[in-house]
Design a protein around this nucleic acid. Sequence first.
DNA 1: TTCACAATGTGAAATTAATAACAAAAAAGC
DNA 2: GCTTTTTTGTTATTAATTTCACATTGTGAA
Lengths: 209, 209
Amino acid sequence: MKHLPHKTIERLSQYRRALLICLEKGQTHIYSHEIATIQHITAVQVRRDLMLIGYTGTLRKGYNVKELIELIGEIIDSSEGINVAIIGMGNLGRALINYFTGKRSHLKIVASFDINPDKIGNTMSGVPCFGTDEMSKVIAEKDIKVGIMTVPAEFASQTTDLLVKAGIRGILNYTPKPVNVPKNVYLEEYDMITSLEKVAFYVKLQEME
Amino acid sequence: MKHLPHKTIERLSQYRRALLICLEKGQTHIYSHEIATIQHITAVQVRRDLMLIGYTGTLRKGYNVKELIELIGEIIDSSEGINVAIIGMGNLGRALINYFTGKRSHLKIVASFDINPDKIGNTMSGVPCFGTDEMSKVIAEKDIKVGIMTVPAEFASQTTDLLVKAGIRGILNYTPKPVNVPKNVYLEEYDMITSLEKVAFYVKLQEME
DNA sequence: TTCACAATGTGAAATTAATAACAAAAAAGC
DNA sequence: GCTTTTTTGTTATTAATTTCACATTGTGAA
Ligand SMILES: NC(=O)c1ccc[n+]([C@@H]2O[C@H](COP(=O)([O-])OP(=O)(O)OC[C@H]3O[C@@H](n4cnc5c(N)ncnc54)[C@H](O)[C@@H]3O)[C@@H](O)[C@H]2O)c1
Ligand SMILES: NC(=O)c1ccc[n+]([C@@H]2O[C@H](COP(=O)([O-])OP(=O)(O)OC[C@H]3O[C@@H](n4cnc5c(N)ncnc54)[C@H](O)[C@@H]3O)[C@@H](O)[C@H]2O)c1
């Protein structure tokens, strides 16, 4: 297994989530077409992804749910787990903290940062909030690798620079402002307005037909 | 102009956002490579996208910011604007309402829905909250075309069915549960855990090198 | 046992997306 | 006025991703 396509990585994460639900229900095996139906994709696509990670199912029985979950874990999780911080404890930051905390064992939110003195020093869902001036120190001490950025858009660039200087390795940018990082830092940007506008576009398109 | 690639649609939305900022600053023209730098893509990509929508710039002066904003609007917005509802006024729903309200004129959040009696009847950033039993009525009356789904994952499917029955035309699903819609409804799903796991994966990959 | 079926696994083809290459032309410099 | 530079617009090429087509094979039924 050499280079997994970006899209495959995303789907593996999704397969795992679906598989975990199956496991909870007590399901031991699953067919490619069952996974496909859940994810709105084709069975071939599922089989190809699994082929790429070198997993082989049982003919006529499908894939072993537990084994597959473990294999996906070996591939996409890092063995020691990864510590994550949220920068900007506003509406979105709080929503994210509530959501993530206590869910995934491999990705752990261990700190948050803000500039508002009312927030600094508090904890939220057990996650302590620090001032941005402490960023370098806290990121080093707590071995934080990934930052989720939810500061106001106008602070996106400077916050990115701070994070990079503090030695962050990956940034998930939820502000609508695209930011620049050196190429040793992995950047993923997501913009809710784009998604909403895309939905609106295709709705319009359908109505015109 | 016939079929615009999905990716082009997404980028057009992003170009427009960047262009609006330029317009505010008083910038009248912009080069393809400037847009490209903002969006971390290549200038060729930008020019190709603009070619696809049939916009042509001025040689050596670049593109007219205002014109381009208007053209993108003609393509991705629908002329009368589109009304949007949020379903599930929890942490994420509230964050989204705060964020969207008053931003885009073409996409307007005009209602929210919940099952919690404490929330029903209130307004939040000027958006009224209704019970889910009123969904069909409100969606019809207010001509709501798109729903943003932020209910707990276990209610995702049933909420989708309600929305579809109420005549919604597009759904943006922020729950981690994939849902099914008839093919006359456009569905976009986004899952923050997938994004975060993807970042974590590439961080791990980089560390191994 | 044999047959038909229902699944996997995968090379090849098709589709979609991104990049390269370059002609054309306006502006600037000389 | 001529040359160089810079930028657009577009065709050709390459790369990435998905789908097709089908060989393979374990399983259950006849
Ligand atoms: N709310 C949403 O649903 C939503 C959706 C999409 C994108 N976004 C984007 O996410 C970001 C946050 O949105 P929000 O609604 O949570 O905003 P918010 O105003 O509620 O929160 C921003 C937080 O960041 C803090 N902050 C400000 N400057 C900072 C700095 N320099 N360093 C650290 N912290 C700082 C503020 O004190 C505040 O707590 C914005 O960029 C917004 O565009 C929000
Ligand atoms: N919070 C996040 O940052 C985040 C991030 C990604 C995804 N999500 C997903 O978004 C969804 C909402 O997350 P949240 O943190 O806002 O949860 P939440 O529990 O804070 O909010 C859920 C809201 O939905 C309402 N609700 C429950 N059942 C309903 C129903 N049948 N119809 C209408 N409303 C109903 C609840 O009353 C509540 O107000 C979840 O599926 C979650 O997995 C959340």
